[in-house]
Design a protein around this nucleic acid. Structure first.
Lengths: 197, 197
DNA sequence: TTTTTATTTTACAATTTTGTTAAACAAAAA
DNA sequence: TTTTTGTTTAACAAAATTGTAAAATAAAAA
């Protein structure tokens, strides 16, 4: 079964991801995607049959990637604090490259429905939540529902990057100065999350 | 000049806001908006001329509202900590009602361009940033760029509500349990932001 | 080489979405 | 009452977007 595999299929998918996740063009048309990929729009139908199926493929891959990244960070064989440090680095890097990935996921869930996401491994997260609880018992973390701890972590990580265009206006700062601020956030988040003493 | 003022114009605008901001239907069509409002689609053109102009109206009003809410919270005649408490209450309430408002604003900025938002009063924010700096000098707040403090505040406030559909899956919790968690966040955010001693 | 097969493109069709024109309607003014 | 004016609707037109069929192309297989 000889596939020529010109790479067009993944080119289209990656281009769609770039438009959706990196550039925030959440309602990009098939034409816009094809143009950005430098291919004929019909190729998009050849490989994905319809726009909806392309979106579904993009959605599922993103979901799977997120799930995998989470699991890898959470199951790493490291002391708790190092795990968190690594997690911050990994997700900060991802958010800088693809700030609108999560936004895409949520809005697609809202429109296409939640059936799409069966791919989530909730196991690693549940065990990690227990690790968080253990740390709280040890006294290294403030007492709270472990879910709050994780939500706080991802809030502090993601939100500023998602809302960058808005906050640059509100705070009247340049793209460069904003980038500097973002680079300071890893350390800052760590001091926010862990107890001082 | 007697206007009959049947309220249709604002009905359309409020319905659009509901779809965009509350239900997260970020690509609602004019037909969907008209149907949701229970009016003929042509009325939408009668009052707003085009879809883009309706979006522009919605965008500008939301931006103005946000700016106003911010200014009112920040300029209030209260001790700093009470200001923050009030701000959390105000914005948490708003985020519960309209979780996708900020998402809408950012994605529209990305597509329609940044020309739209001239309406922002940056003055109140700038003076408030100085207040934050003063509090840090007093020692009630952790030392950091005041912009970080504000970004942290809004991150912790907004992000969990924006990403609720995603996080409910990741954490495997029901809508009800999630709502309970959200209700705990005001107190939790306060203890995260202010120094313990 | 010819044949086969996967891929790409062209041309066209169908559907969806938006926008316009003119008529119908309803309430206040004359 | 009739007239006027603002509002709503119906019917139609235009544009944008998606989808399909078949032809052209190019690379591997025979």
């Amino acid at each position: 079964m000889p596939l020529k595999n010109t790479g067009t299929e993944s080119l289209i998918k990656e281009t769609a991801k770039r438009l959706f996740f990196a550039e925030g063009k959440l309602h990009a048309t098939t034409q816009e995607i094809a143009d950005a990929a430098g291919v004929n729009r019909t190729s998009l139908h050849y490989y994905f049959r319809s726009r909806d199926l392309l979106l579904e493929a993009v959605f599922k891959e993103a979901m799977q990637g997120l799930s995998l990244r989470l699991a890898e960070c959470m199951e790493a064989e490291k002391p708790f604090k190092e795990k968190i440090e690594n997690l911050i680095e990994v997700f900060l890097k991802d958010m800088i490259a693809f700030p609108y990935q999560e936004t895409f996921l949520v809005t697609e869930i809202n429109t296409l429905g939640k059936e799409l996401m069966g791919n989530i491994q909730s196991g690693p997260i549940q065990t990690f939540l227990k690790d968080v609880r253990t740390e709280m018992d040890k006294g290294t973390l403030e007492e709270m529902d472990p879910i709050h701890f994780l939500m706080n972590l991802f809030s502090l990580l993601s939100y500023p990057l998602i809302m960058a265009p808005l906050y640059r206006q509100l705070f009247q700062i340049s793209v460069e100065d904003f980038a500097i601020l973002i680079n300071q956030r890893k350390e800052m988040i760590l001091t926010m999350l862990f107890k001082k003493n």
